[in-house]
Amino acid sequence: MTNNLYNKLHAEGLISDESFEKIRQKEAEPVLFSLHWEIKTLLYIGVLMLTGGLGLLIYENIDTIGHEFVLMLIAAICLGCFYYCFNNKRPFSKDRVQSPNSYFDYILLLACTSLLIFVGYLQFEYKVFGTHYGMATFIPMLALFFVAYCFDHLGILSMAIANLAVWMGVSVTPKQLLLESDFNSETIIYTYLVLGIILIAAAYITQSTAFKKHFKFSYQHYGIHVAYIAMLAGYFHYYDSGIAAVWMLGIFALSYFIYKDAFKEKSFYFLLLVVLYSYIAVSSLFVRMCIGIRDVAAFYIIALYFMGTAAYLIVLLINLNRKIKAS
């Protein structure tokens, strides 16, 4: 059937003889059925089951095995993996470095996870850092950032960012952000704001110094979510005082800034985030205005507002998408 298609395209003069010959050759070869994803998934499940089973075995027999042995085992895994990675890594470069083989990334991931478990175990069982909880997260964080840059691994970078957040006393991944966070505390809101600004700043330093440019996405992704959520939380926290206006202004300033950048980078993902978060902000202002009207008419106005603005936003998104594609 494919052959018919290309015969037709060739007859219509849309495909050159050279390309047609290539297609012919490709079709002469047998089609290979790729088991790549099946193998990878099975590998992942196998590792999970094995580590889970061994972990349970150790957990149930901890009295006879002893903590020292477990710690040594984890340390051995960690060191072994790092040894492998350092021996097989490609030379450092300021740009993206491809990993030497498909298992390298996973081994590095195992090394970093076991490092975190090791430090956590040490702190939990022996209180190595005493009550300096900051140190217990600060040291792994430095190590993770170093590993992420040294081996050029985006996954580890995300782990490092999450650790930075933990060190500052908050969590950063979107799921935990919404599940566990407690936005009624002022310190938490300010911590989030500082974290968001640090991350966005890191994104721009990455960009302007052209040092590991592809890391920008991770920094900006976490930075934008955290900063927006912190500022919206700040706005609702100081809802009744005048400071709320400052938070609102902050949101609009950030939106303007990210909007410009998203256009420059042609990133529709960030543009969508800007539009949706700003929409939440504007809508909350509007609802606040309407809620003063103690009448059923307020609901009509709000419903009309949402229908109208949402329809407008649909048109806006479609046009922005065209503009980004065209530019």
């Binding site: 975190l116 430090v119 996954g155 782990m159 505390s185």
Partner: peptide
């Protein structure tokens, strides 16, 4: 990766009283 293995050793946060979870987000309405 960040979602599944980011439960790093969490330090207990001691910042005053804990209130109930703040509820917002989701459509802004």
């Amino acid at each position: 990766v960040a979602e599944t293995i980011s439960h790093a050793p969490t330090a207990p946060v001691n910042d005053g009283v804990k209130f109930g979870g703040g509820d917002f987000g989701g459509g802004g309405s």
